[in-house]
Simulated assay, not measured.
Amino acid sequence: MVPLNVLSPLPPCEPTSAERVDELLSRPGVRIERIVSSGQCSPPGYWYDQAEGEWIVLLSGAAGLRFEHEKHTRLLEPGDCLDIPAHYRHRVEWTAPGTPTVWLAVFYSSTNPWPD
């Protein structure tokens, strides 16, 4: 069931379980998800390489996000947002343990689904 409030209810904070992903909206060319992390990160050596763009905003918690071409991990705190173009390789280095890290992710097509 889609939550009516993106910050509640949140699933239990269990680092041994997978991230929780709730699809909030899906339309041609765009998909919006709420992602709840509780200490999860990308597997060693794994880089996301997505065919669609992704705009993210961190709503609560904290995370470290790294782009393949950058040497340092970016610290994300509540309110921070990023636009990640399609095929821009990135990984989640860490998310805050013991507290929910809530992401709002907007995935979008690299082509314009609307006529000019």
Results as ranks from 00 to 15, higher is better:
32 I>A: 10
37 S>Q: 06
65 L>Q: 02
46 Y>F: 15
42 S>N: 09
37 S>P: 14
54 E>D: 13
80 D>M: 03
35 I>V: 14
34 R>V: 12
6 V>T: 09
12 P>A: 00
50 Q>T: 15
84 I>L: 11
109 S>C: 04
31 R>W: 08
25 L>C: 13
89 R>K: 08
112 N>Y: 08
10 L>W: 04
95 T>S: 11
87 H>Y: 04
56 I>T: 10
40 Q>T: 09
88 Y>P: 00
26 S>Y: 06
35 I>A: 13
22 D>Y: 05
39 G>A: 06
92 V>C: 10
108 Y>C: 06
78 P>N: 00
105 A>I: 08
70 E>S: 06
49 D>K: 15
104 L>D: 07
74 R>C: 02
70 E>L: 06
59 L>S: 03
69 H>Q: 08
19 E>L: 06
96 A>C: 05
69 H>E: 05
94 W>A: 02
107 F>D: 01
42 S>D: 14
2 V>N: 00
104 L>Q: 12
39 G>M: 04
30 V>C: 06
41 C>F: 11
3 P>N: 01
53 G>M: 09
116 D>I: 03
32 I>V: 14
83 D>T: 06
38 S>G: 09
62 A>Y: 02
83 D>F: 07
108 Y>S: 08
108 Y>T: 13
113 P>H: 12
99 T>R: 15
48 Y>L: 15
107 F>S: 08
36 V>Y: 12
110 S>F: 10
65 L>C: 03
47 W>Q: 13
72 H>R: 07
31 R>L: 09
98 G>M: 13
71 K>S: 14
12 P>N: 00
37 S>M: 09
79 G>K: 02
3 P>W: 02
